[in-house]
């Protein structure tokens, strides 16, 4: 299957963003196709969160355009973006610790039953739909919609947030550091969910600074350094070390290793003293 022939679901064309005199993003060109995961890598302060905010309608680009399915679009507000199918999931975003899974899943779109002014929240229906949606994504451990969200593991909770976005019709899924606070096992849960979303044909933008996690799900990688796309490559074109070095802003990691190596050789194999 040739992905290059498909029109990107969302594309940024020469997007610049500045806040007053400060340029935050320079000439960003990125695109994501359906069923593809774009990993956006970058150190803290590289401009990742500004880019997310532009994609989700919080900020508007100073210049440049956003295209969906090849047509230019303007996201004046987050609501416009979400109506067009852009869903941004921040850490645990959209889940509520002290609410039941069923209630949390349907916040803002509560199913009701009953008549006229006496409509009541349909707890059974909400629980059933929420549990089914989560199980369809392979999280079979969630089987009771009355459980409180805060009682789930971090991975399950993050997965619930993603499943919720997918269930309510997202076409572009923006995941903001979904694995940052999770342990290895929990993170792998979330990565499985990301793969599921990709299989369902969503365009996924996966923001992270964990190279391993990016390599596990990514088809396409972009490294952001000081507000510009410093590298843009496809799966298999670079090794983990190369990506890590790129993120750190050049050959730093190799230099650092060489430096330590030199020091140890000149100091009888002792590592440098901690200062």
């Amino acid at each position: 299957m040739s992905m290059e022939n498909k029109v990107p679901v969302i594309a940024l064309k020469d997007v610049n963003k500045s806040f007053g005199p400060i340029d935050v993003l320079h000439d960003i060109n990125l695109e994501v196709r359906a069923g593809e995961v774009l990993c956006l890598l970058g150190d803290n302060g590289a401009g990742k969160s500004t880019l997310i905010k532009i994609l989700s309608g919080v900020h508007q680009p100073t210049s440049g355009t956003i295209e969906m399915d090849g047509n230019p679009v303007v996201f004046d507000t987050p609501r416009v973006a979400s109506e067009k199918g852009i869903a941004t999931v921040h850490q645990f975003g959209g889940t509520f610790a002290l609410m039941s899974i069923g209630r949390s899943f349907f916040v803002g779109v509560e199913p009701t039953k009953g008549w006229g002014p006496f409509k009541v929240f349909d707890r059974k229906k909400a629980n059933a739909i929420a549990v089914k949606a989560v199980q369809d994504f392979g999280i079979t451990r969630i089987d009771d919609g009355d459980r409180l969200v805060g009682g789930l593991s971090g991975g399950e909770r993050q997965s619930l947030a993603i499943v919720r976005a997918v269930h309510f019709g997202a076409r572009v899924l923006i995941l903001d550091e979904p694995t940052a606070a999770l342990g290895v096992k929990q993170a792998s849960h979330v990565l499985r969910i990301v793969n599921q979303a990709k299989k369902r044909g969503l365009a996924v933008i996966f923001i992270t600074h964990q190279v391993m996690h990016a390599m596990a799900v990514g088809d396409h990688f972009a490294v952001l350094i000081r507000g510009a796309v410093a590298a843009d490559f496809r799966k298999g074109e670079k090794t983990r070390e190369q990506i890590t070095d790129l993120m750190a802003g050049g050959e730093t990691m190799a230099n650092l290793e060489a430096e330590i190596e030199n020091y140890m050789q000149s100091h009888d194999g002792h590592p440098p003293a901690a200062h």
Partner: peptide, 24 residues
Amino acid sequence: HLSPWGNWVYAMGGDKISARNAGI
């Protein structure tokens, strides 16, 4: 507890920004 609006109150107290993002 029964009307859909009650859900909004809980959501708002749980996480105001997420609640707003969810269209409340």
